[in-house]
């Protein structure tokens, strides 16, 4: 198992992470090592085993369709790095 630089580049792009060349090499080596070790789980037989997500039996519940707002619009935008009125401002998308 080898995570090559092309894969690192692809993963970094998917994850939207700018990774410098030096770190990319390091990540490549480390992820190769980690995943090689972790691959030991592939030896286990899991035929017909349903994947487990929530580890405890918890009763499913849904909420009633009621409106409740505890914050003002201003509070929702108070942390925005940049805004225009009550809208969030980002680079041109198209």
């Amino acid at each position: 198992m080898i995570i090559d630089q092309k894969t690192i580049e692809h993963i970094a792009k998917l994850a939207r992470l700018k990774v410098n060349a030096e770190d990319a090499v390091e990540y490549g080596e480390q992820l190769t090592k980690v995943l090689t070790h972790f691959q030991q789980i592939s030896a286990l037989d899991t035929t017909n085993i349903e994947p487990l997500v929530t580890p405890v039996d918890i009763e499913f519940f849904a909420r009633e369709d009621n409106v409740k707002q505890e914050n003002t619009t201003e509070e929702m935008l108070q942390n925005a790095p940049e805004k225009a009125g009550n809208l969030f401002k980002v680079p041109p998308v198209v």
Partner: peptide, 9 residues
């Protein structure tokens, strides 16, 4: 997915 399966076990 494999990890989640083993997790159940």
């Amino acid at each position: 997915n494999k990890a989640c399966q083993v997790r159940r076990l």
